[in-house]
Simulated assay, not measured.
Amino acid sequence: MTAYALAHLRRAPVHAEVLEYLERIDATLAPFEGRFIVHGGPVEVLEGSWPGDLVVIEFPDSTRARSWYGSAAYQEIKPLRTRHLAGDVILVEGVDADHSSAEMAAAIRRADGS
């Protein structure tokens, strides 16, 4: 199942180390078949607030997503980002193409006895 690494990064002044991180991250993704599907860009806030940027990286599965994040190559460059950009980073699995939120609600009702 497809998995995603998501980062909500707070905006900060551009720093040379962050630029180096950007220059090097693609090479860390390649062995795990990771690819950017969102990398900053304009955000239209429809509800709440969103201070910062969104980054979404797609992987074929959660094993490769975790392996990328824990890899020596990524761990080597991660401090270039974390020293200068505050944020939250998560890994999450996607859903099947036939996912139905109505079926999900029905399963929750059955399990809950509702």
Rank of each mutant, 00 (worst) to 15 (best):
V43A: 15
V43F: 01
E44G: 11
E44Q: 14
V45S: 13
L46E: 11
L46I: 11
L46D: 07
E47C: 06
E47D: 09
S49F: 02
W50A: 12
W50H: 14
P51E: 15
P51T: 09
P51V: 01
G52K: 07
G52A: 10
G52F: 05
D53N: 13
L54T: 08
L54R: 12
V55R: 06
V55E: 07
V56W: 07
I57T: 12
I57N: 10
P60Y: 14
P60M: 13
P60S: 14
S62I: 15
T63A: 15
T63H: 13
R64Y: 06
R66C: 08
R66G: 04
S67T: 10
S67R: 14
S67H: 10
W68K: 06
W68M: 05
S71V: 01
S71Y: 01
A72H: 07
A72D: 10
A73M: 01
A73C: 01
Q75C: 00
Q75H: 00
Q75S: 00
E76A: 12
I77N: 05
I77A: 05
K78V: 01
P79I: 02
P79A: 03
P79R: 04
L80Q: 04
L80F: 03
T82F: 01
T82I: 04
R83D: 03
H84N: 06
H84A: 00
A86R: 07
G87K: 08
I90E: 02
I90F: 06
I90P: 02
L91G: 04
L91K: 04
V92P: 02
G94C: 08
V95F: 11
D96P: 13
D96E: 14
